[in-house]
Design a protein around this nucleic acid. Structure first.
Length: 910
RNA sequence: GGGCGUAUAGAUCAGUUGGUUAGAUCGUCUGCUCGACACGCAGGAGGUCACAGGUUCGAGUCCUGUUACGCCUACCA
């Protein structure tokens, strides 16, 4: 290290290269330390990163680095999420292809484009390819996206072990997703059912409860008259008159006085003349609409509930396309002329059908009153733009407590066992679990994703037998049933009577994402290969349940919950012990930062302008679970801290003899510690040990922000007060040395000079460790000036919690029993760090004098008379020499007893 | 409609079990080229703790209500 100026600019790249070359963050499979494993959120590779990602990923990295500092063997993998609709669209547009289940796999397939050309293609110009080919292209493109992500993560200083990465569509993820599905299936935890469910007419797929989004949607209330047997009229209100033909009952609340007489009777619908019962059900609401509702199959989820509870017939007319789709022959409940009208409606959109029905109702005089516009909340698929319909279809489910009270209770209990940080986030989990109204729908009628590993037999009549699916052997996974064939069959038997047919559906992305602990930790039966970094079952046993799941609050209902469900089913365990939930980054108008709002701030220019440590510092300042407004002004604070640290290190090291620097921190430390002899030096170190203890306590509770605050406050006080105080002494200048002292005095003076240097060195080492999780680049840079190893693999801090001079005589605590070592240290620390605090206050009051006189800090004062308590005079006495030097008091610094407990300047002379 | 969270200096945030005069940083103002650091140092100004009640000797903190904002959830009669 030379005398030129130090800077944080440009220090990252060389350090990153060293970290990579030395494998600094490697998970050590056979190391003895306690394991700390992290279920890192796999970012969506087709998206882009903004400062919100920087924020939450930094929080995780702080924990990882802290645990490593404390001697844990940290397993910190990284996943990339490339499974699901966003990637499907990106791959489609990028290469000009689309997946098609009827296409055969083409080896060495070359897509027609590679770039943006695909974006403008018309639908029929896309090259239709097999699912297997599509997945290959996805993996290819994702690798490019991943490289960009990795670059940014590394630049930010994430201490991820880059040998442990996975993609949610890769072979291993597909193997584990399929394996777990088969295991659930055998255990009766996964099942298929033909039932009404939410359906997106645009994407042509079933949708799960977790993917719903309620949005405002305009509609119109229509009042329709039904006729009862005695000729009286029953008026109902509906926003969906087109469903009149599929009405199966009228439903009102059991206690509703208005309808008591009607319960148990039947009424007849207008236009179609269908006789339907009037029934009572508690889900009916007296204050809504007319208080009596038309139950259709199916208009909404309440209809499904009534249909199920009241055992009503099914009269569906809405098809998968969202149009009226009815087989007039099968519509046996309709008779006479109404049939012709129904045939007219066939093939029409719901919208067109509605106006046709309304016109007909008007003509028939069955439409009462005005048509009233309304806006109500309606369920949409989160990625769709048309309201969901309810369509009956055969789907696969995993039990999640939505239809099983006992399981629901168990899952609530799991939530109680999990340590949510912050704790109130558990409420979101509970609300979701208790609000579930059905099992988890995992099948999607899409083309890109993990296939269900299933085939079905086709009987001699060509009927598919869904009840007894053909399962592959676990060793054959991953399988694509569209390409692979069941064990005892061959391709010629595909889709022919007496043969088999593939399950064409794919799994929901969450069905794979819910297994990230299993994927990352290696839940596979595979021999452990020492050369192979990838985890296997032997690792899984060590790593699972994982220590930590960091994630956003918005996906508690999806990612967190579904992962808990899978681990509960498969391992009868929680997947992790702690869940750390980060808050949002808000824009300056306090709106959530998100790509769709167009208010995102991208991080690269910030990293370049302020340095990685600065961004980390900004993120570290926010507590878990608390939203934080983005403010670029905050970036410079972290940069200032990193810069200050480099300068401090440069100064402290410049005072040390060469042989100390050559030995490095580890071999110098004990000597330096025992060479601290002066009271004020010891006092400072005791204060630092207190800081370390409280910072560790905060960190142990996942409170990185208070930990940083404690460390940082000490750091600045250390720089401004302690360093200034002992500087002259460290340089070897002492008051009495100017008078040509005796041998004895000179020896004392040498010792006290050494004490200052040693204390500075010890404090530097300790603070390097404490700051390392927050500003890993600056601390590493300074460390490299005198050490060959990385500070991030140093766990020295263990042995340094109790410096030898703090181990004094044993004392008793207030109960008269012997103190534990910790208690004793605590008691002594509190006492003995007082001197350093007193010195800081003293410096402050005298500096104020100079500042008020508009003098330079260097300018001399002849005399200063300080008023203090008797106790403080005793304490401060040993430091008068240092104080006189730093304050440049030429004649006398008098300490006078005053009534006040404060330190005050009674008098001074210029 | 139900739930969770937030509201403290111009800005971003701390504020422990209720306890002297509510803290920090940025910005702003005044001064200082000090042998690590001007990307620095010293000092100052700046607050009716969202609002209204209540409990208490004492409330930023506890209770009740209100308002604003964010999020979750429910709602297609």
């Amino acid at each position: 290290m030379d005398q030129k100026k130090v800077t944080v600019d440009g220090i990252e790249q060389p350090i990153l290269q060293r970290w990579a070359a030395d494998d600094v963050y490697a998970y050590k499979r056979d190391a003895p330390g306690e394991i700390y494993s992290i279920d890192t959120p796999p970012p969506t590779v087709s998206g882009s990163l903004h400062v919100g990602h920087i924020f939450s990923y930094t929080h995780t990295d702080l924990i990882a680095r802290y645990k490593r500092l404390r001697g844990f063997n940290v397993f910190y993998p990284m996943g990339f999420d490339d499974n699901g609709l966003p990637t499907e669209r990106r791959v489609q547009n990028y290469y000009g292809v689309r997946p098609d289940i009827i296409k055969a796999y083409i080896p060495n397939y070359k897509p027609p484009f590679a770039g943006t050309a695909g974006k403008n293609l018309k639908a029929n110009k896309y090259d239709a390819i097999s699912r297997a080919n599509f997945i290959e292209l996805c993996e290819k493109l994702s690798r490019e996206d991943e490289a960009k992500f990795k670059e940014l993560w590394m630049r930010l200083g994430l201490s991820v072990d880059w040998k442990h990465t996975y993609q949610t569509i890769d072979d291993r993820s597909r193997r584990i997703a399929q394996k777990m599905f088969l295991r659930h299936l055998r255990a009766g935890l996964a099942y298929q059912a033909e039932s009404p469910g939410l359906w997106d007419v645009t994407f042509q797929t079933a949708v799960a409860q977790a993917e719903l989004e309620a949005r405002e949607y305009p509609g119109f209330y229509h009042t329709i008259a039904f006729t009862s047997a005695d000729g009286s009229v029953v008026e109902i209100e509906t926003t969906r008159p087109e469903l009149l033909v599929s009405c199966v009952a009228l439903v009102a609340y059991p206690d509703d006085e208005r309808y008591q007489k009607l319960f148990g009777t039947t009424v007849t619908s207008p236009l179609f003349n269908v006789e339907v019962p009037v029934l009572a059900h508690v889900a009916a609401q007296m204050d809504k609409g007319a208080g009596i509702a038309m139950c259709c199959t199916f208009g909404d989820l309440t209809d499904v509930q009534w249909w199920r509870d009241l055992k009503l017939p099914t009269r569906s007319i809405i098809g998968r396309s969202g149009r009226i789709e009815v087989d007039a022959n099968a519509a046996s409940w309709i008779t006479g002329g109404a049939r012709d009208f129904l045939l007219e409606l066939n093939g029409k959109t719901a919208f067109t059908a509605r106006s046709m029905v309304v016109d007909a109702l008007k003509d028939a005089g069955a439409l009462r009153g005005e048509i009233v516009p309304t806006t109500r909340m309606t369920n949409f698929y989160e990625k769709g733009d048309k309201p969901l319909e309810i369509v009956t279809s055969r789907q696969w489910y995993i039990k999640n407590g939505g239809s099983d009270d006992d399981l629901q209770k168990q899952l609530v209990k799991r939530g109680k066992e999990l340590n949510f940080v912050p704790d109130f986030m558990r409420t979101r989990y509970n609300n979701w679990v208790l609000g579930l109204n059905s099992d988890w729908l995992i099948s999607r009628q899409r083309f890109f994703g993990v296939a269900f590993p299933l085939w079905y037999k086709i009987d001699e009549n060509g009927e598919i037998n869904y009840d007894e699916p053909i399962l592959p052997d676990e060793s054959a996974l991953p399988v694509d049933p569209l390409i692979d064939v069941p064990a005892d069959m061959d391709e010629s038997m595909r889709d022919v009577p007496g043969g088999f047919t593939a399950e064409k559906d794919i799994m929901d992305t969450w069905a794979t994402s819910s297994l990230t602990p299993h994927i990352a930790c290696g839940y596979e039966e595979r021999p452990q290969n020492v050369e192979d970094a990838k985890t296997t079952r032997a690792d899984f046993e060590r790593l699972f349940p994982m220590s930590l799941r960091p994630q956003g609050q918005d996906i508690i209902r999806t990612w967190l919950f579904s992962t808990v469900v899978r681990a509960h089913h498969e391992n009868n365990s929680l997947p992790w012990k702690n869940a750390a939930i980060s808050g949002w980054i808000l824009d300056p108008d306090r709106k959530k930062m998100s790509k769709s709002k167009g208010n995102v701030v991208t991080p690269m220019h910030l990293l370049e302008t302020y340095g990685s440590d600065a961004l980390r510092y900004w993120a570290a300042n926010a507590r878990l679970g608390v939203d934080s407004a983005f403010d670029e002004g905050q970036m410079k604070i972290g940069r200032r801290l990193a810069m200050k640290f480099l300068n401090l290190a440069k100064f402290v090291l410049s005072l040390q003899p060469d042989e100390v620097l050559k030995l490095g921190a580890l071999r110098t430390f004990e000597n330096a510690l025992s060479g601290v002899t002066e009271d004020v030096d010891k006092s400072m170190l005791v204060g630092l040990c207190e800081v370390q203890r409280s910072a560790f306590e905060a960190f142990d509770d996942y409170n990185h922000a208070p930990a940083l605050e404690i460390i940082e406050t000490f750091f600045w006080s250390f720089c401004d007060d302690f360093v200034e105080l002992v500087k002259k002494r460290a340089y070897g200048e002492q008051e009495n040395s100017v008078h040509g002292a005796h041998e004895e005095v000179r020896a004392e003076s040498q010792q006290s000079s050494a004490s200052a240097k040693n204390a500075l060195l010890v404090a530097l080492v300790l603070q390097s460790h404490l700051l390392a999780p927050f500003i890993p680049f600056a601390t590493e840079e300074a460390w490299s000036w005198w050490n060959a190893d990385s500070i991030h693999t140093s766990t020295m801090v263990h042995n340094l919690i109790i410096p030898p001079f703090m181990k004094g005589t044993r004392t008793k605590n207030t109960e008269g029993t012997r103190m534990s070592e910790d208690e004793e240290v605590c008691a002594r620390s509190l006492q003995s760090s007082e001197l350093f605090k007193l010195v800081s206050t003293t410096l402050q009051v005298v500096r104020r004098i100079k500042s008020e006189q508009k003098l330079s800090m260097k300018s001399p004062l002849k005399t200063v008379r300080l008023g203090l308590s008797a106790e403080n005079i005793n304490l401060l006495w040993s430091t008068v020499g240092d104080l006189r030097m730093v304050l440049n008091i030429t004649c006398e610094l008098q300490l006078v007893e005053s009534g006040s407990s404060e330190v005050e300047v009674l008098d001074f002379e210029l």
